[in-house]
C-alpha cells in the first residue's frame, strides 16, 4: 500500500515535470491530418515524398535553403528516390536531379570561381548567398532553412500543413496587417497591438512574412495526382518531415527488434531471479 502511494506520487510528479511547456502559446489549434508515418509502425509514403520533393524544388526552393541535405540523400533508404538496385551515389534519378543544379566551385587549374553541374555528393545550393541577402530580398525576414523545419516547430508536419494551406485572406476585422506581412492564425505570436475592435477577443496567431505559397495546380504531379492546395500541403509537409528525420524507418524497424529482445530478455532474467530467490525469505 505504502509502496503504491509512494510510486503513484513519484509518477505523478514526474509526469507533471515532463509535461511540455505549452503555456503562453496563443496560436490556433493545428489542422488535423493523417500521416502515413505517425504510428510506431508507420513508414513514409515514397510517392508522397516524391510529390513533396517536387513542391520543394518548384516552389519552396526559390526562397528556402535545404543546406543539410545532399542530393544523394534523396536516394537513401527510406528516401523519395530510394531504389534498392542502386547506392545513393549512382542512383540515376538522383544523378539527373543533381545535374539540374549549378554548384559553385573553384576551378582547380585557374582558381576561378565557377559553376558546374551538381553530383550526388553535393548539397542543395542556397537560394541566397548569405543571410543578409536573404533578409534584403524578403522584406527583412530570413526564410528559415528547411532541413530541420518539421522538427523545429511545435506540431511538426501538422504545423507546416496548417501554415502553407492557410490562404492569408481571412484576417479578422479590426486587425491592421503591417506592410509585407500576412496574418497567420497558426504562427505563435501576439497581435494585440495591431488589433482594434473593442468588445472582441484578440485573435490568435501572429504575422508571417511568407505570402500564401500554394495555389491549386501550382505543380503538375508526375503520378497524375490532382494538385489541390490540400494535396500540395500534405506532400510538402511529409517531405519536410522526411528531411528532418531521414532515419525514421530504420529507427522504428530496429526499435521493434530491440523491444522484442528486451521483453524476452526481461522474461528470462525474471525466471532466473525467481529461481535464485525461490525459498529465500525476503
Amino acid at each position: 500500500m505504502l509502496r503504491k502511494i509512494f510510486a503513484a506520487a513519484t509518477l505523478a510528479g514526474l509526469v507533471a515535470m515532463a509535461a511540455p511547456a505549452v503555456a503562453g502559446s496563443t496560436r490556433e489549434t493545428l489542422k488535423e491530418v493523417h500521416w502515413s508515418f505517425e504510428s510506431p509502425f508507420g513508414q513514409y509514403d515514397q510517392a508522397q515524398l516524391q510529390r513533396g520533393f517536387k513542391i520543394y524544388k518548384e516552389v519552396c526552393s526559390a526562397c528556402h535553403s535545404l543546406n543539410q541535405i545532399a542530393f544523394r540523400n534523396l536516394g537513401d533508404k527510406g528516401g523519395p528516390f530510394w531504389n534498392p538496385k542502386y547506392t545513393p551515389n549512382d542512383n540515376p534519378v538522383v544523378k539527373a536531379i543533381a545535374k539540374d543544379y549549378q554548384i559553385a566551385d573553384i576551378d582547380s587549374d585557374s582558381g576561378d570561381a565557377i559553376k558546374r553541374p551538381g553530383v550526388p555528393a553535393d548539397y542543395f545550393p542556397s537560394p541566397f548567398s548569405n543571410a543578409a541577402a536573404a533578409r534584403a530580398a524578403n522584406g527583412g525576414a530570413v526564410p528559415p532553412d528547411m532541413s530541420l523545419l518539421a522538427a523545429a516547430r511545435e506540431g511538426g508536419p501538422a504545423y507546416i500543413y496548417s501554415v502553407v494551406t492557410g490562404d492569408g485572406t481571412d484576417a479578422p476585422a479590426g486587425l491592421t496587417i503591417p506592410d509585407g506581412k500576412y496574418y497567420d492564425p497558426w504562427m505563435s505570436g501576439d497581435v494585440s497591438s495591431y488589433f482594434k475592435n473593442p468588445g472582441h477577443k484578440v485573435p490568435k496567431g501572429g504575422f508571417i512574412a511568407m505570402p500564401p505559397p500554394l495555389i491549386a495546380d501550382r505543380v503538375t504531379y508526375d503520378d497524375g495526382t490532382k494538385a489541390t492546395i490540400e494535396q500540395e500541403g500534405k506532400d510538402i509537409s511529409a517531405f519536410l518531415q522526411w528531411a528532418s528525420d531521414p532515419h525514421m524507418e530504420e529507427r522504428k524497424t530496429l526499435g521493434l527488434s530491440v523491444m522484442i529482445f528486451l521483453f524476452l530478455f526481461s522474461g528470462v532474467i525474471y525466471a532466473s531471479y525467481r529461481t535464485i530467490w525461490r525459498n529465500v525469505g525476503h
Binding site: A18, A151, A152, R153, R251, G255, L262, Y273
Partner: peptide, 29 residues
C-alpha cells in the same frame, strides 16, 4: 540477478524513448 532484472525493465522504458519518441524530452527550438 535482481539488479539485472531491474536494469532490463528500465531498458524497456529507455528504448521506448530512443526508438519511438527520441525528441519528446527535447525542445523544438
Amino acid at each position: 540477478v535482481k539488479d539485472l532484472f531491474a536494469i532490463s525493465v528500465f531498458m524497456i522504458l529507455f528504448a521506448v524513448f530512443v526508438f519511438y519518441m527520441p525528441e519528446a524530452l527535447g525542445k523544438v527550438d
